[in-house]
Nucleic acid binder design. Structure first.
Lengths: 205, 205
DNA sequence: GTCTATACTTCGATAGAC
DNA sequence: GTCTATCGAAGTATAGAC
């Protein structure tokens, strides 16, 4: 009973920083904002995290890892048909992002301003992807004449960008009144539309 | 012979600022950077544009207008079949963005941090879209049984986000070696894939 | 129009008391 | 662990000479 989850100072700072960094980006966020909203002072941030940069990286890499692990899992899972895998991928990654709606923006912003940080991770991911069940399956189905030819990179990019799009564009949608209940519905409807669209394309001879 | 286009100081500042703002975002850009790269001093920026904020908005709104005008034109053009309109839209908007590759990021960042600025523009655009040839055509073709039903908002969002995706994700693609010649090729290939994909979906009963 | 010089503000970081 | 106080660096804005 002495401690509630997320109730200690370090967690509080982390939570606030995560919120602000994803909302306003690295440069747009000041450690003073974070401190104020967390109800502490600036010195304490540096006590826990040494610097703004380290605070950022601590939060960011945690988020990113979680997300890319989820993706890998589905890409490699053994017992799925191509169609099921694609639907599963779209549904799971969407749900994952719903829990972390600012992650796509987070990744984009950071890649733009801090590319070096991703060089390594990205190379590993690329190799994993190329050896995944998904790519293997794409080649097999194409050879069997079940689907048309598509560069796996293109397919992967299309799926990923379609899943991420409403999160990246959330502010634009918001301006158009797609918020709250409507937003939820919009995202859910997209799951099926996107999957159907990709599968319609693949299946067409 | 006394003046070359874009060679006067104001245009020079505007050009440099546009470059830096789109590269590094608003917060990431300093007026000292702009001044230095434009070969002038800080005071001159404030002489022409009064403040960093006004400089930014001047450039931004100019870019945005150009882009949304292009979109409107294609949405309203009279003598196009639905298929041609979709292909045309994808091709034209892609080409437009190739000339202005940082505009999507520009818009996203700004909507996130400065939503009020778009409230008006967005409402107007939405009404225009709902009364466009494209939406009219969608309803007609659906009534004729030529295409399946889709909420025009979903379709518009899918097309737009797919066209913008590689620009928003440029840094991620860059990390994966999609640069220069490869980038050019990637974008061009996508034009056809995206169009085929959307049309495959629509045409499927 | 363009420059120098400078006042004012904000930010990240740290020293040191408790 | 947490706070106050303060520093140096970077940024914004303006006054005033040319």
């Amino acid at each position: 009973m002495t401690e509630q989850i997320g109730d200690n100072t370090e967690e509080k700072i982390r939570a606030v920083a995560k919120k602000l960094f994803t909302e306003k980006g690295y440069s747009g966020t000041t450690i003073r904002d974070v401190a104020e909203e967390a109800g502490v002072n600036v010195a304490l941030l540096n006590y826990y995290f040494r610097s703004k940069d380290k605070l950022f990286k601590a939060i960011f890499m945690e988020n990113f890892q979680e997300y890319s692990d989820k993706i890998s899992t589905i890409l490699f899972q053994e017992d799925l048909t191509l169609e099921t895998r694609i639907r599963h991928f779209i549904n799971e990654v969407t749900d994952q992002l719903k829990k972390n709606p600012d992650l796509p923006t987070f990744i984009m912003t950071e890649c733009r301003q801090n590319a070096e940080m991703f060089q390594g991770k990205s190379k590993v991911y690329k190799e994993k992807f190329e050896n995944s069940q998904m790519v293997k399956q794409l080649k097999e189905e194409e050879a069997k004449g079940n689907i048309r030819h598509i560069d796996p990179l293109h397919l992967h990019f299309i799926i990923s960008s379609q899943v991420m799009a409403p999160f990246l564009s959330a502010p634009v949608l918001q301006i158009n009144g797609i918020v709250g209940e409507k937003w939820e519905q919009f995202i859910e409807e997209r799951k099926e539309i996107i999957a159907d669209m990709i599968l319609a394309y693949l299946k067409k001879p």
